[in-house]
C-alpha cells in the first residue's frame, strides 16, 4: 500500500487493484486451509453411545438475567454434572425469541446445541408470519422444565377487592379501565387476551417494553391492572404495593397461599402459565435425546434447583412431564389454543 499513500485522489490505479485481488485470492486459500483443519478436529455426531464428548450449549432466546435465562442456568449446572460435560448457556435474543429458536432449528443435530424456550414457542407461529421454522416439525422435544404461574394484580387503590368485583368493575368502567402489558408476545399480553375473553370486555391496553416499566407504572398508580408471572409480582404483592385478585393456575401457589385460583373465583377458563421446555434440532439421535431427558429429570430433582425455583414462585414440573411425549402433547395443545386466540385478537407482527 506504499504506492497508494502517495496517490493523491481519484479511483485506485490498476496495479493497486490487481495486487489487491491477488492478495484476496491468497487469503481465500488460507481461509479454506483453516476451514479444513477446523472441521477435521470435530468428531462425527453418529454415536449416541459416546455422547457427550464435548461442551453442550443451551441457547436461550432472551437476554441474560431474564426469567427464562435464570431457569436455564439453574438446570444447566446439575445437567453438566450428570452428563459429565460442561453445559453452557448462550443468549441469542431478538424478535420475541424467534431468532434464537431459528438458530437452533438450523443447527447441526448432534445434541451439542439445544434450545430452552418458554410458552413463546407456541405463540410465535400466530404472531410471526414468516417464521423460518415449525415448532413441531423442526425440533425434537426433550422434556418440560417448569411452569411459572401468573397473578392478576391491580394498583393498590383500585376499588374492587375480589376477581368477581373486578369483572363487574371492568364492565362498568370499560371506557376508562387500563391494562398494562409488557409488549407483544409477552406473557402479560397473552394473559390479557384471555382476560378479555373471560371478562367479556375489550380492554384498553397500555404497552410497555418489558415487565419492569409496566410494574413501575402499576405501583405508581398510572395504570389500573395487569397479569404477570409470580416471579415479578410476588415481592410487590407481599409488600402490599399492589392488590392481588387471583392466580391463574389450577391449584393455589405455595408462596401465595391466601390467593384464590381463577377457578375458585369463578373463571375456570382463565388459565395460563409460562411453561418452559428443552428442545433439540430435528434429526437428533433418539439415544442422545434419552440421555438429555434423563439429565434434565435428574436436574429437576436436585434440592438446590427446587429451592431456587421456589424463590421464583415456581416448581419443577411433575416427573412424568419431563418426557418428550408430555412435552410434545403440551406444545401441540398450546399451539391449538393460542393460534385462534391471537388471530381473533388481530395481533400480527408482520
Amino acid at each position: 500500500m506504499v504506492s497508494a499513500s502517495s496517490t493523491p485522489l481519484g479511483p485506485p490505479s490498476a496495479p493497486v487493484s490487481g495486487r489487491f485481488l491477488r492478495r484476496a485470492a491468497g487469503l481465500a486459500t488460507v481461509g479454506v486451509a483453516l476451514a479444513a483443519c477446523g472441521s477435521g478436529g470435530t468428531t462425527g455426531a453418529t454415536a449416541g453411545v459416546n455422547y457427550p464428548t464435548q461442551t453442550i450449549t443451551i441457547v436461550v432466546p432472551f437476554s441474560a438475567g431474564g426469567p427464562t435465562d435464570t431457569v436455564t442456568r439453574l438446570v444447566a449446572e446439575p445437567m453438566s454434572k450428570s452428563l459429565g460435560q460442561q453445559v453452557i448457556v448462550q443468549n441469542v435474543e431478538g424478535a420475541g425469541g424467534t431468532l434464537g429458536a431459528g438458530e437452533v432449528a438450523s443447527a447441526k443435530a448432534d445434541g451439542y446445541k439445544l434450545l430452552l424456550h418458554h410458552i413463546g414457542m407456541s405463540t410465535a407461529p400466530a404472531l410471526y408470519a414468516n417464521l423460518p421454522y415449525k415448532p413441531l416439525e423442526d425440533f425434537k422435544t426433550i422434556g418440560l422444565v417448569t411452569e411459572v404461574p401468573m397473578t392478576i394484580i391491580g394498583k393498590s387503590d383500585l376499588a374492587p377487592n375480589t376477581l368477581a368485583e373486578l369483572v363487574a368493575y371492568a364492565k362498568a368502567n370499560k371506557a376508562t379501565i387500563t391494562y398494562a402489558n409488557a409488549g407483544v408476545g409477552a406473557a402479560s399480553q397473552l394473559c390479557g387476551l384471555l382476560i378479555e375473553k373471560a371478562f367479556g370486555v375489550d380492554l384498553t391496553e397500555v404497552a410497555y417494553k418489558g415487565t419492569g416499566p409496566a410494574m413501575t407504572d402499576l405501583v405508581g398508580g398510572q395504570v389500573d391492572f395487569m397479569c404477570d408471572q409470580t416471579t415479578n409480582t410476588t415481592p410487590q404483592i407481599k409488600a402490599g404495593k399492589v392488590k392481588v385478585y387471583a392466580v391463574t393456575t389450577a391449584e393455589r401457589v405455595k408462596s401465595l397461599p391466601d390467593v384464590p385460583t381463577t377457578t375458585e373465583a369463578g373463571l375456570p377458563d382463565l388459565k395460563v402459565g409460562v411453561w418452559h421446555g428443552l428442545y433439540a434440532p430435528k434429526g437428533t439421535d433418539d439415544a442422545v435425546i434419552k440421555k438429555l431427558t434423563d439429565a434434565l429429570a435428574a436436574a429437576l430433582k436436585d434440592p438446590k434447583v427446587i429451592a431456587k425455583m421456589a424463590d421464583l414462585g415456581s416448581a419443577p414440573v411433575a416427573a412424568d412431564q419431563v418426557t418428550p411425549a408430555a412435552h410434545t402433547k403440551l406444545l401441540t395443545a398450546q399451539l391449538d389454543l393460542w393460534g385462534p386466540v391471537i388471530k381473533n385478537a388481530g395481533v400480527k407482527t408482520s
Partner: peptide
Amino acid sequence: PLLTLGLPAHPVMALLIGAFIIQGITPGPN
C-alpha cells in the same frame, strides 16, 4: 428504585434483578 421498590430503572438494573433472583434474593420493596 431497584433497591427500595424492586423496579429496574434501566437495562443494567434489569440484569441485576436476574442476578438477585439467581442468588435467591427477591428484589422488591422488602
